[in-house]
Amino acid sequence: MLPVDGIPTPEDIMAKMPPPERLARGPVVMVECFQQIPCDPCTHACPRQAILPMKDINEIPRVDYEKCNGCGQCISVCPGLALFVVDLTYSEEEALVKLPYEFLPLPAEGQVVAGLNRAGEEVCPARVVKVVATEKMDKTAVIWLAVPKNMAMEVRHLKVKPRGTTVICRCEDVTLEEIEHLIKVEGVRTLEEIKRLKRCGMGPCQGRTCLPLIAREIYRLCGTEPDSLAWPTYRPPVIPLKLGVLAGGGSDDAQA
């Protein structure tokens, strides 16, 4: 409950929800501002005046949802981090949530992070689609997160997970966590696809170290027997050879 722990109840949230018809048409602002306080930057931030002017600075902001196009320019302006943009039409399976983020380091585009709900609990993996952090935004970045559709009204913050430290592919510096993510979240099932997405097996070792380990992860996570996997072709040369040597220019010292 807001007055007790600062966490809005489902009823509080319902009252702030844009109309369903508007949500169905694409990105739109959601103003999760609950308290009457003397604050109004949002009303000045919107280039389309979608957040309506206040008669009294203590008013709770009101929105003309027809005017809002979901650009998100208001998000970084709100000192209460109360403004979000939600796009339920982002794709078949995913919704997009644009949210304010004031931690460093900023996540990278494409990175998978933990989506947190309003109580700060991890609820799902989320993919960083875009990081907007211009000089003008004064250190409040706006992060675009792709989340499973049913999480669009849940995810309001994110946590950057520390990069895994178990290196599986030494040639190309790929970690166990990255491989697990490909298998569990992206639904990748074959060595060939992992090779092409992460370069595992394309380095000097030609996959001799990493591919058996990756095959074991596929077995652990999906139950596919390593013998029934299609193994990438081992390609010549068996050990790296200098072009100069191949061209007939003497011996390769490092391998002599």
């Binding site: 030609q206 390609r235 010549p236 790296p240 200098k242 072009l243 100069g244 061209a247 390769d252």
Partner: peptide, 22 residues
């Protein structure tokens, strides 16, 4: 491998020290 190496080492000589991995 042999043909490629011969031609490229003549055209871009410093590449002779690069190792072919695949």
């Amino acid at each position: 491998l042999v043909q490629m190496a011969g031609k490229i080492v003549r055209l871009l000589p410093p590449l002779k020290n690069l190792r072919v991995v695949r």
